[in-house]
């Protein structure tokens, strides 16, 4: 039962991530081609509840692979990820996006 949940989480993570890749590529394209710069680049500190090293690493890997967000640094106690975002008008919404898209699924995989 637990194995099935993990497999489902893995598959949904892959699908969600692939979709995010396409969508954020389109967003970066729109930002690059807009006539006047209207985006808000920002460094966001994203708190995470993940415990294992490999899951925090995977979260940083996934955020760094999407265009529009780069993980710059992970704090020593692995509780905070410092992510530079190309367009983050709303900090809380960006954090909520990371948590609802990746963190929940990684949490299931972790157990």
């Amino acid at each position: 039962m637990r194995l099935i949940r993990k497999a489902a989480a893995l598959v949904t993570l892959a699908v969600v991530f692939a979709w995010d890749l396409v969508r954020s590529s389109a967003q970066v394209t729109a930002i690059v081609l807009q006539p006047r710069a209207r985006h808000h680049p920002k460094i966001v500190a994203v708190p995470t509840v993940l415990e294992k090293d490999w899951s925090v690493g995977t979260l940083a890997y996934l955020t760094s692979l999407t265009p529009g967000s780069t993980c710059l640094h992970v704090s020593e106690d692995r509780r905070l990820l410092y992510i530079h975002m190309l367009d983050a008008p709303d900090e809380q919404a960006a954090i909520a996006k990371f948590q609802s898209h990746y963190e929940i699924r990684l949490r299931i995989l972790e157990r």
């Binding site: 590529s25 970066v28 394209t29 690059v32 680049p41 692979l65 999407t66 265009p67 529009g68 967000s69 780069t70 530079h84 190309l86």
Partner: peptide
């Protein structure tokens, strides 16, 4: 440079 990295390195 950070914004350029989003465009160049990743896209």
């Amino acid at each position: 440079p950070f914004q350029r990295m989003h465009a160049a390195t990743k896209a």
